[in-house]
Every structure is written in structure tokens, then in C-alpha cells.
């Protein structure tokens, strides 16, 4: 426990001191948001106001993208000699990774809050219902944690920074083949099948329903189930990989 907290402190310091990476993590999502609302927004018909339709998708995209950068951070960290020192300590093998994941969640909370703030300025008009917001926040936190753990495992598996970058690409593109930006039923048959069955869709649908005050249905439980699966799998896989490499 002390070890995990110590590594959380270490990773937070790393985050704050890597100014370039921090700016990218926080400003890129805002740039993506502005692009969708002001550049593409006028051309896409999603029924209703597009800004209200797309912001939940952007939020999920940003969370995914930010959390996936954990893969790069972990791969980079593993190349430094200090990791061997940690491996010779009598502490839980996953403690170093817990630090990375927690710092990643913290970065994402900041960037997601910023995205929501800018979205409100840009005309996003969600429902004002504390319970629904709380549920959405819980789901987003779960999502950040899940993607961060999976990314940590991926970063250990990939070994190189270049390899770990592939995770960022997957996370950056998966949301496009979901209901995040355009309704899934507007896609060609094959793609819409993928869109309806991949994890991003229930997550985006849940966030959208929660924030816009529409019925949530089953998608919330499916979304939480996907996140729980990601957390468990990511944790187990990364602990294994950490001791092996």
C-alpha cells in the first residue's frame, strides 16, 4: 500500500514535469472537440443539435486517447534502469504500474473536465441532474482506469515506445466506428455491426443518455461490464508481464 502510494507520487511528478506530454494530453482533446463542433458539425445530421450528440463521443474519445498514452509512458519507463531497482524490492509487482495508472486517471480527469467546460461554452446543453452526472462520472472513471490498465499491459508487451504507440492509434480510431460521431445505423452493414458490438458504443450511448436525460436502458450495465473486464484483464496481464520482462 505504501509502495503503491509512493509510486503514485512518482508518476504524478513525472506527469507534471513532462511539460510537452502534459500539454498534449490536455490540449489535444480540446482541439478535437473544437474541430468536431465547428468544422464538421454543420455537415453531419444526427437528428437534433449535433453538439449535444457529439460531445459525449468526444469525451469518450479523449478519455480513450489519454488513457492509451499510458502504454507509451510505461514502455518508456521500462527502458530506464531504475525499474530493475524496483524489481529487487520486496514489494507487490504491480505497485509501479498502479502509479502509472493512477497518474493517468488524474491527467484524464483534468483534461476531461476541461473538455466539458469548453463544450459548455461551445453550446453543449446537457440535463442538470446531479445523480445522472454522478453516474456518468463513475462510468468515465471506470473507463479511464480500464483503458489505463490495458494500456499498461500493452506497453509492457510491446517493450518499445514505437510498439506501444499502436495502442494510442487503436484508442484514437475505435470511437469512430461506434455511435460516437454518427449514428451506427447510418454506416454500411458490416461496419454498423462492428459499431453496435464493440465496447465504445454502449459506453458512449450511456454517457449520452445520462447527460441528455434520455432513457439509459441496458447499455449502462454493458458499459460497466466492459470496463470491469478491462480492469481485471489489464491488471492481471500487466502484473505477469512486469515480472517476466
Amino acid at each position: 500500500m505504501t509502495a503503491s502510494l509512493t509510486f503514485v507520487g512518482r508518476s504524478l511528478r513525472h506527469s507534471v514535469r513532462s511539460v510537452d506530454a502534459l500539454l498534449t494530453a490536455i490540449l489535444l482533446p480540446v482541439a478535437i472537440l473544437l474541430m468536431f463542433v465547428y468544422v464538421f458539425g454543420g455537415a453531419i445530421d444526427a437528428g437534433g443539435r449535433y453538439v449535444d450528440y457529439v460531445v459525449p463521443g468526444i469525451i469518450v474519445l479523449c478519455v480513450g486517447f489519454g488513457a492509451a498514452s499510458t502504454a507509451v509512458a510505461v514502455a518508456l519507463d521500462m527502458t530506464t534502469g531504475v525499474i530493475d531497482r524496483f524489481r529487487t524490492l520486496p514489494i507487490a509487482s504491480s505497485a509501479v504500474l498502479t502509479g502509472h495508472v493512477t497518474a493517468s486517471v488524474a491527467r484524464n480527469v483534468v483534461s476531461t473536465s476541461l473538455v466539458i467546460g469548453v463544450a459548455l461554452i461551445a453550446g453543449f446543453r446537457p440535463e442538470v441532474d446531479p445523480l445522472r452526472w454522478l453516474a456518468a462520472a463513475a462510468l468515465l472513471l471506470c473507463l479511464m482506469t480500464a483503458i489505463s490498465w490495458v494500456a499498461a499491459a500493452f506497453g509492457l508487451f510491446a517493450k518499445t515506445v514505437e510498439g506501444a504507440n499502436a495502442m494510442t492509434f487503436i484508442a484514437a480510431f475505435a470511437p469512430y466506428v461506434s455511435s460516437g460521431f454518427v449514428p451506427a445505423d447510418s454506416m454500411p452493414a458490416g461496419l454498423s455491426w462492428i459499431a453496435e458490438h464493440q465496447p465504445v458504443t454502449p459506453i458512449v450511448d450511456s454517457v449520452r443518455a445520462l447527460l441528455m436525460g434520455t432513457p439509459v436502458g441496458n447499455s449502462l450495465w454493458i458499459a460497466f461490464a466492459w470496463c470491469a473486464a478491462g480492469i481485471v484483464l489489464g491488471r492481471v496481464a500487466s502484473s505477469r508481464l512486469f515480472r517476466q520482462s
Binding site: 509502495a3 509512493t6 534502469g81
Partner: peptide, 28 residues
């Protein structure tokens, strides 16, 4: 045990004092 490996095992992003305090915490 303690190990001082052939390649220096220090955290370059932290300061010297932070490195040592981190190790102290990890060692309890």
C-alpha cells in the same frame, strides 16, 4: 539484499533528494 547494478538505476526526472526519499518510503 540491495543491488547497485552496472547501469545506474536512478530516476532521472526526480531530484537526488526525491530519489532517496522514494527509496526510503519503499523500504519503510
Amino acid at each position: 539484499i540491495s543491488l547497485t547494478a552496472q547501469e545506474a538505476a536512478v530516476d532521472g526526472i526526480l531530484t537526488g533528494a526525491e530519489n532517496l526519499r522514494m527509496m526510503a518510503r519503499l523500504r519503510g
